[in-house]
Design a protein around this nucleic acid. Structure first.
Lengths: 246, 246
DNA sequence: AACATCCTAATGTCAGGACAAACTGTTGAC
DNA sequence: GTCAACAGTTTGTCCTGACATTAGGATGTT
């Protein structure tokens, strides 16, 4: 039996129709209207009910399959996946993640400089010799408890960065406001032992475990905008993600 | 200037046309025929050259955009991303990853049992009370060096698992041969300090850093098939991935 | 009762067309 | 000379239509 879902679409909205469907089904899943494991009606009927064409309906379901909420089987139908799946890792900053979760992070700028990039940074950001970058380290706390120690390098030919603003906004928000459209980022997650510099800042015992993350972000023009090396207290942070098989 | 690329498609092949295009462009990028930053011809011309419809061409480019190889901008065109991006995290086992990299991993089965699932395992795999699971721990070495210590729980109502085979094949290969079609997995990556059990097995000093990974995999029918807790030597392993902004 | 065959339902692939929206460069007015 | 309006190019969205492929049940035969 296929579950009935009543969603409506607004053709005068600037939001694409397929995306309205995505949001509608997502909401139905999260509110529990569509139970995990339940079958959806078939694409053609669903499209007809919403007065949409099948390709549009399919595009919506494609996105949901990609994000791991739905599972399709040819000749059978489409099922809601048995939930318990995390949302996939997104291209956002820790600050965004935390504020979305309702926490109130604070940021302390430990150092800030506008200097000539060294060889390693030029390599990471693919900059010519002599180019300058912003270099800064920040300490992020949540509820007064240190969570992350972040060191970043940002090219300076896109937008200016102000030390004061850096203390009150996430880096990604600043860059987006500066006109940067992020497209992708490559990152590497590992582990290390807290050294004598990191441990007191994070209020962790020397020798305790840290999660490390190195990331380089690319904007829509292909420029490497930002590279950074972050460490997190292992007892307070981990990376969750959902992998989808194609 | 748009780069010319000569690829051919085989309409008699069982491989979908759009996927042939994906493979062709991927190959052109990897061989360097399409240089990072170069522009592709527009969708309509490309489709016409290959005698394809625009939707088919677009579907191919969609996949490449999703995987982070291409970047599209409305009104402008499609560019090859400035490379240096890693391939995204895939739904595969460590064994697959290593063999793909040309290494020769060995696996030592430290323990193996077929037991009734405890509460935590039933919760993770969503099993009813009294259900049985396979439970085993394995030590993986590459080049004689210990790399990972893996503890897994697998439901037993899908395929039988043999201790001997487990020593010579990756878990995912065994399950796939047993008819399991994986669809998605949710995982969490963190860090910890090697304890007195892990350290000697991994030939690491007690107190050294480990990368931890917990994963639960779901098959195409929505069943939780496998859950596991793995730890890796932080000096030998890290997780690389590419995040794509939608 | 066991097995092979057919049928149905659903997703997968592909075509061709139309219009909308955004970016870029050019042209024109002031 | 500067700025705004415009036109061209390219991707974004949406439609209708058709056929292929697969899974699974129903049917019929042995």
């Amino acid at each position: 039996m296929a579950t009935q879902l009543n969603l409506s679409i607004d053709r005068s909205s600037p939001v694409p129709l397929y995306h309205q469907v995505v949001q509608g089904i997502e909401a139905a899943i999260h509110t529990g209207l569509l139970e995990p494991g339940s079958r959806l009606e078939n694409e053609i009927d669903l499209a007809a009910q919403l007065n949409l064409s099948r390709p549009t309906m399919r595009k919506a379901m494609d996105e949901l399959v990609r994000s791991g909420l739905l599972v399709r089987k040819r000749g059978v139908g489409t099922q809601v996946v048995s939930s318990q799946v995390r949302r996939p890792l997104e291209l956002s900053s820790l600050y965004d993640d935390l504020t979305n979760n309702g926490s109130k992070p604070t940021t302390e700028v430990l150092s800030f400089s506008h200097i000539e990039a060294d060889a390693a940074t030029r390599e990471a950001l693919q900059l010519p010799a002599g180019a300058k970058v912003y270099h800064f380290t920040r300490l992020r706390k949540v509820g007064g408890k240190p969570l992350a120690l972040m060191e970043n390098w940002v090219r300076d030919d896109i937008t200016t960065i102000d030390e004061v603003v850096l203390g009150s906004q996430g880096l990604y928000a600043i860059l987006r406001n500066g006109g940067v459209n992020f497209r992708l980022a490559s990152q590497r997650i590992g582990a290390m032992i807290a050294n004598n510099y990191q441990a007191p800042l994070l209020e962790a015992a020397p020798g305790s475990a840290l999660v490390t993350m190195e990331r380089t972000a690319v904007d829509d023009t292909g420029r490497m905008v930002e590279t950074g090396h972050h460490v997190y207290r292992a007892d307070s942070y981990s990376f969750e993600m959902t992998l989808v098989q194609r």
